[in-house]
Design a protein around this nucleic acid. Structure first.
Lengths: 116, 116
DNA sequence: TAGAATGCTACGCTTATTGTAGCAACAGGA
DNA sequence: TCCTGTTGCTACAATAAGCGTAGCATTCTA
């Protein structure tokens, strides 16, 4: 068994406290977790569609992330493929503003680099 | 050299597209990135204070995360220790609501488990 | 001026992620 | 029915990331 699913009562990867925010950060702080949620926000996707939209992430990891996100109640399997649960959609509302904001960050960073 | 710093023009860990949101997710999707930002939001902390509040995370990784977050413009070194930059503080405003929300998520998850 | 704290680095080990290959199950279409 | 394509994976080997302990050089502090 490669990795446990982070959850309040089931803390992982150093998240020994079991504090909800740390369990959440542990879950989201794994490769592609945020990306998968981001992509599913636009509607259901099949396994391979998620791979395509996440730069061909390896099936090994996608499978693992799907299991974790499902166990954590953010993702479920529907008729159209994998989709966000209502909790997942709620989580996305917090993430959504980061889309536009990240562009500002990108611009600020690159202009800083130009100054150096 | 262990890991590159994710940035819009310097994409990492599969983030080949260089899309700002994916670069941001790549950065935040590394162990303890979110946790460090979370802890620094309450004010400056020293290296060892961050370790203490992040469940004794290993200095190897803390050092690496600090370098990445500094290069990305979210963290800087001040007189009182490490602190969020204005960009870091801005990023935290998006993260902040997750604190309370994660508790609701925790409760929902554990009551689900009880039903099974 | 002897601790104590601080900010690390080194090192060996475990765990995570990647990339490629491929397989079983199902769905049309000829 | 047989062929072809899609889907959702699993296996495997290799690389990268993270962990934990030890320790060291440099300030602070009493």
């Amino acid at each position: 068994m490669p990795s446990r699913v982070p959850a309040p009562g089931n803390p992982v990867r150093g998240s020994k406290s079991g504090k909800p925010i740390m369990a959440l950060f542990d879950l989201l702080g794994r490769s592609w977790s945020l990306g998968v949620i981001w992509q599913l926000a636009n509607g259901p996707l099949t396994f391979r569609q998620i791979q395509d939209r996440c730069e061909q992430m390896s099936p090994t990891i996608l499978n693992r992330r799907i299991k974790e996100l499902t166990a954590s109640g953010f993702v479920e399997k529907g008729d159209q493929g994998y989709q966000l649960t209502s909790a997942g959609a709620e989580l996305f509302t917090f993430l959504k503003p980061l889309g536009g904001w990240s562009k500002k960050w990108a611009d600020a960073l690159s202009s800083e680099e130009r100054q150096q």
